[in-house]
C-alpha cells in the first residue's frame, strides 16, 4: 500500500511535498485532494484515480509566486521552510472556503501544521493581512 506522498516525491519528482513524520501528525505533506487539505503520507494511492490533486507545485514557481506565497515571504512567516509547502496548501484550502477567515478559523485550519521555527506569530499576521486585502486570488 503506497501513500500518495511517496509517488508525488519519488515517481513524479514533486518534492515540494515534504515528509516530516509519515504518520499524519505534522502536516508537512499536506496537499489538496478534491478541494480538501489532507496528509498525503496517509492517502492510499489506489484511491486517487479520478481525483483532483493539488500540490504546492500547482501554485507556481519561485518567480511566479501565488499572492499568498508572496505575502508569507514578505512577512517573514516561515524560517526553515520545511513545513511551509504544507502550510501553504492548508491555507489555500481554507481561503477558498472562507476568503475572510477569522483568527480562530485560521488557527483551526493550521492546527495540523506543526512549525517549530516561527512560533506561528508572523504566519498569523500574514494571513490576517492577506484576508484583509482580499488579495489571495490570482
Amino acid at each position: 500500500m503506497t501513500p500518495l506522498a511517496t509517488i508525488l516525491r519519488d515517481s513524479l519528482g514533486l518534492r515540494g511535498t515534504k515528509i516530516g513524520c509519515g504518520n499524519g501528525e505534522c502536516g508537512a505533506c499536506t496537499v489538496i485532494v478534491d478541494g480538501r487539505a489532507i496528509c498525503s503520507c496517509l492517502a492510499p494511492l489506489g484511491r486517487m484515480p479520478g481525483r483532483s490533486i493539488e500540490t504546492v507545485e500547482s501554485l507556481g514557481g519561485p518567480d511566479d509566486l501565488h499572492p499568498l506565497q508572496r505575502k508569507l515571504v514578505e512577512r517573514g512567516a516561515f524560517q526553515c521552510g520545511f513545513c511551509t509547502p504544507g502550510v501553504v496548501m492548508s491555507l489555500i484550502a481554507l481561503l477558498r472556503e472562507r476568503p475572510d477567515p477569522s483568527d480562530e478559523e485560521v488557527r483551526c485550519a493550521l492546527q495540523g501544521n506543526l512549525c517549530r521555527c516561527s512560533g506561528y506569530v508572523k504566519l498569523l499576521e500574514a494571513v490576517r493581512e492577506i484576508a484583509r486585502e482580499g488579495s489571495h486570488e490570482r
Binding site: R9, L14, R15, G16, T17, K18, I19, T55, V56, E57, L59, G60, G61, P62, D63, L65, Q69, L72, V73, E74, R75, G76, F78, Q79, C80, G81, F82, T84, P85, V88
Partner: peptide, 20 residues
C-alpha cells in the same frame, strides 16, 4: 527588515533539502 533570500524557493517547494 529584509525577507529571506531563499524565501521564494522555500515557499514554492523548490528549495532542495537533503530529503529531496
Amino acid at each position: 527588515p529584509r525577507p529571506q533570500i531563499e524565501g521564494s524557493a522555500k515557499v514554492s517547494g523548490r528549495a532542495e533539502y537533503t530529503h529531496d
